[in-house]
Simulated assay, not measured.
Amino acid sequence: MRDDDDDAWSTTATIGEQNTRDASTQTEMEVLEAAFSPEFHFHLIQLVLSGQQQMRWALEHLMQGQQAIVGGQQVQTRSRVCLQGRIHFYEGYSFAYIGSLVKILHQVGVRVLIVSNAAGGLNDEYKTGDVMVIKDHINLTGDNALRGIVHPEKGFPFISIFYDAELQTIAHEAAKCVPGLSERLRSGVYTIINGPSYETVAESKFLIRGGADAAGMSTIPEVQMANYLNIRVLAFSLITNMCVRTYQEYSRLQEGPSDEVAEEVYEVGRERMPQIVEWVTGIIDRIPMDD
């Protein structure tokens, strides 16, 4: 199972002199490992912030219940925060609601957003376990994070390039320092489907013809809002399975229990996690930040 049950995403930002958490209580590696853990989801509640608030206060009040982890750490005058899990369009939330967390992160100082997801591969050259740096996306859901927020009389946002070119270059450079990752790193186009059901064979063929390399059920709402707020974005997909592209493949998958298929997807995430954690750490260290 992909975005519906094992997604995670993280953010990194410069927050000036704010301290979000005692750095001695949690190492950066531990924070990032928590961010990429698939066990929990968090849920947004309505929150309106007026002016600059302390990051820890803001993020703690975003959480509903106990099934959420927020890790913040002050390293070399930079504050980083990792968020675990996400909410999805298929759960009934609008793109604008999903993107509202990014608005709050922007208010507390986030200027760079690193977004991850688990996705199905559409490109014939991809293999399960590959990591795809997202260079562009296709949104055919019919929703947009800015719908109802941006009004035509105020002008339409001219946003055609959502993914920061410099951050993509940094990601590829950082991958060279992680054994076994560089040769599995791809660059491609991500597409979002409504979910919660997977794409049909016909839909997969349609998406491939349209230029998509991987398909998932998340990420684009957050990316749309981040770009509107001038937050630089780096996004990547872990290819946890290959999308079904022939009816023969579909028939074969129907023969096996669905829980076994889900376990195979989880296993890909578990195997790749140490490399991804090391990679993202390297990316963060290389990102130039303006004070």
Rank of each mutant, 00 (worst) to 15 (best):
M1H: 09
D3V: 03
Q18I: 13
T25G: 04
E28Y: 15
V48G: 05
Q54S: 10
L59H: 07
R78S: 06
R80L: 15
V81P: 01
R86Q: 12
I87Q: 14
I87C: 09
S94W: 00
F95Q: 08
A96M: 06
G99E: 02
L101I: 12
V112D: 15
L113I: 10
A118G: 07
G120V: 06
L122P: 09
G129P: 10
D136F: 05
D136A: 14
G142H: 01
L146D: 06
R147D: 07
G148H: 01
I149T: 15
P152Y: 13
F158W: 00
S160I: 02
I161V: 08
Q168E: 06
H172W: 09
A174M: 03
P179N: 05
L181S: 08
R186A: 02
Y190T: 00
G195N: 05
S197T: 15
V201F: 13
A202R: 05
A214V: 06
M217Q: 10
T219L: 06
A226G: 05
A226M: 06
I231G: 07
F236S: 14
F236I: 01
N241R: 04
M242Q: 12
G256E: 13
E260A: 06
E267H: 13
V268W: 02
G269R: 04
E271L: 13
P274G: 11
P274W: 03
V280F: 10
G282Y: 01
I283C: 05
I287W: 04
